[in-house]
Design a protein around this nucleic acid. Structure first.
Lengths: 144, 144
DNA sequence: TACACTAATTATAAACATTACAAAGTAATA
DNA sequence: TATTACTTTGTAATGTTTATAATTAGTGTA
């Protein structure tokens, strides 16, 4: 299924007229397979072996491209660096205040919130994001 | 009413054993009165007149203190710097993709989402945030 | 397949927000 | 007043992200 997602993503790139370079392929592959929410630097470091000459700028450039096509979402929390999440099915994130762990959390889309927001504000709504904060099971146990 | 909020905030500081310095008073006052979502630098610049010697570090330090007491929330969007929002009544934000305008948007708290998240993930939930993205009325008119 | 056009990559420098640190100042308490 | 702990200040340092120019590499067409 990761294979399939990758193909879909590559098709999306073709349709948008975006060239498919080895670096882009590798970044996408890593995002899909990692099942996590890596920072740009983490992606850069994890591809060091395959692409010893790849520049950090390439990672940033392509994450921006993927974002523009809609393949990837940028997650900005309070901490230093953004994290990037492959857009697959609708889901939200729940984040541990103590250890920073991020867990995916599926929930029927909040369409009614979007609709009401349109009516109240006059915006044309395209998207929304939500994060839930709390304490993960592990950190609940370790009462310091 | 801004006056009143300020007093409440100052009481909260007293209860938390946090000293009320002129700088803290001014930062809080600005946050409450501005009715916007300023960056740390905007706060710094707007208080330059009153406090010519105030350091940027002071602004950052105190915003962190306010956050810890629960007086202020940090809003991190994709852009360079965080914005800070006085915690008053429950509300969310709707943000224009084009011009970056941020508009408050009231909505009955999503308590049922928090509850479900607890059940599904085992987290103990304390808080959540949501942002809605779209195109504001002004930017809809100016079809580029 | 080779060519030409355009886009992408690289390497580096720069910008920028935020934090760390030490020294000086200030409030609270006894 | 002396002591203590907390705040502010100024500056340096850190770390992420972007800008730039030169080089390299995809892609469509002959």
């Amino acid at each position: 299924m990761a294979e399939e997602k990758l193909h879909e993503a590559i098709d999306a790139m073709k349709n948008s007229g975006v060239r498919i370079t080895p670096q882009r392929h590798a970044i996408l592959e890593h995002l899909i397979q990692s099942m996590s929410h890596p920072t740009a630097d983490e992606i850069y470091k994890s591809l060091e072996g395959k692409f010893p000459n790849m520049s950090v700028a390439t990672v940033y450039n392509n994450l921006r491209v993927f974002k523009e096509i809609g393949l990837v979402k940028e997650l900005t929390y309070g901490d230093a660096s953004s994290r990037f999440d492959c857009v697959t099915t609708d889901h939200y994130h729940i984040i541990c205040d103590d250890c920073g762990k991020i867990v995916d959390f599926h929930y029927p889309g909040l369409d009614e919130v979007e609709t009401l927001a349109e009516q109240v504000t006059g915006f044309r709504v395209g998207d929304h994001r939500m994060e839930i904060y709390g304490k993960c099971p592990d950190c609940q146990k370790s009462k310091h």
